[in-house]
């Protein structure tokens, strides 16, 4: 059986050639080894690259790994060339995507109930962008299509797995704090303007 050093070295070369996320399963098949062992090798490599502060880091996307550049270096890359930026998503696309991500598998009807507005076109757009896909059919009347997010979604939004999605409570907490800050700031500004008038 190949030594860990050999495997890690091989994984590095394979990732280099492959470019796209390389699945743990593919590598496990090549070495005829357990997926868990290969996964650990990937993880070790990832840590090594991270710790040494290399310009290339390893990104995990749903049990697959790929080389990407270090975020901090974007500025330098942009001075060398202009990488194509992904177009921003519209507000409605983001809202719809948020609902799909947190409620999946979800039907169009359920999404529309949350947003209070139809979302056929937005969904078509998300499907075309490869962020959302059909994942099956609900057992309810009419067997409506169920939608879920794709690996492309994980990749673009920097999640390793769906389990990485932050808890909704955490997001709400952060939001509430922001609101409080805004209120407090308003109060201060109010005072200042009053003082100014008094002068």
């Amino acid at each position: 059986m190949a030594s860990k050093k050999t495997i890690k070295s091989a994984i590095e070369s394979m990732m280099f050639v492959w470019g796209e996320p390389l699945s743990v399963k593919a590598v496990a098949d090549i070495f005829n080894m357990e997926k868990k062992e290969i996964y650990d090798c990937f993880k070790e490599l990832q840590t090594e690259y991270e710790q040494e502060g290399r310009g290339i880091v390893i990104r995990e996307v749903n049990k697959s790994f790929q080389f990407v550049t270090r975020k901090e270096n974007l500025d330098y890359i942009e001075r060398l060339c202009t990488p194509v930026r992904k177009r921003r998503l519209s507000q409605s696309a983001l809202e719809t995507l948020a609902i799909v991500a947190y409620k999946q598998p979800v039907t169009k009807g359920e999404i529309e109930a949350v947003r209070g507005i139809r979302c056929d076109r937005v969904m078509d757009g998300l499907i075309r962008k490869g962020l959302v896909a059909e994942v099956g059919r609900a057992d309810s009347v009419g067997r409506p299509i169920l939608f879920g997010t794709t690996d492309e979604f994980l990749k673009q939004f920097g999640f390793e797995t769906l389990k990485d999605l932050p808890e909704i409570e955490d997001i709400e907490g952060a939001l509430a704090e922001e609101e409080d800050d805004a209120m407090a700031l308003d109060g201060i500004l109010g005072q200042i303007s009053l003082e100014d008038i008094n002068r």
Partner: peptide
Amino acid sequence: KLQEYKKFKAISAMLEERRDDTAMALEKPQ
């Protein structure tokens, strides 16, 4: 309903931020 809606609006803001952040790491297409 409004609470539910606000919740997802907050999530969408979080997602947008994450996407912008993730886009800073470039991948090489196959």
